[in-house]
Design a protein around this nucleic acid. Structure first.
Lengths: 111, 111
DNA sequence: CATTGATACAACCTACTGGTTGTATGACGG
DNA sequence: CCGTCATACAACCAGTAGGTTGTATCAATG
């Protein structure tokens, strides 16, 4: 669903509070880069770079709106990341079950 | 649930394929650092550093077992990350509802 | 078509990351 | 207690990330 390289990109994009905030604001999809930039204590270009990171990770896209470009989150990528974490958690549950098997002894044990 | 700084640590820990793999292996919780290290094409010390990153992020802990230390994943942190992504997705759903409100027109509109 | 507003991009700097090797600590076996 | 296995840590290096400023493109407007 997410290749290892894509997962790298998605998680490292999420590993920055400013980018997570941009992602949240981009849910509404009504702000351009300039509007976003006003909200953070850094230069316009810095915010632009953050948006570019999110875009490369597939977490947002830009839509032309006149002379602006609106930043909108791509919720599908977010869901893919969720699913990856779900898989890990499923593995964990599997581990518990396997441990239970062991604790219940070899009655139904290996052939 | 996760402070911004903690979220930074968790996601940046997850943003590396080797570390995600270690995390999965650590679900079984029966391997020490040395056993893990054998599986990756890098030095023991490099794997040790990856484990340290996961540990600082709270995603794994080490349990002493004789002269070894077993690396075990802390599933609670994983769940906290999941919940964070759930929150984002909930925001998205909220956006959809708000958009529907708008599309349905101002019958119940602003006072 | 010149100006202005919004975005993009390049060059640069500093700090951190991911890897290396080498050395030190800690726990068990003889 | 001496050796050895397992882990930890420090020093170092190359590459990348996150910030800066400055310049260039692109679209609307007079």
């Amino acid at each position: 669903m997410l290749s290892p390289a894509e997962a790298d990109q998605v998680f490292s994009a999420l590993a920055d509070a400013t980018r997570r905030d941009i992602l949240r604001r981009a849910m509404a999809g009504s702000e351009g880069v300039a509007e976003l930039a006003e909200r953070y204590p850094m230069s316009f270009a810095a915010v632009q770079k953050h948006v570019a990171v999110l875009e490369r990770a597939g977490l947002v896209a830009k839509e032309r709106a006149g002379r602006r470009k609106l930043v909108v989150t791509q919720v599908e990528r977010l869901k893919q990341a969720q699913r990856l974490l779900d898989e890990y958690e499923a593995l964990w549950r599997g581990r518990i079950e396997r441990m239970s098997d062991i604790l219940e002894g070899p009655q139904g044990g290996a052939a």
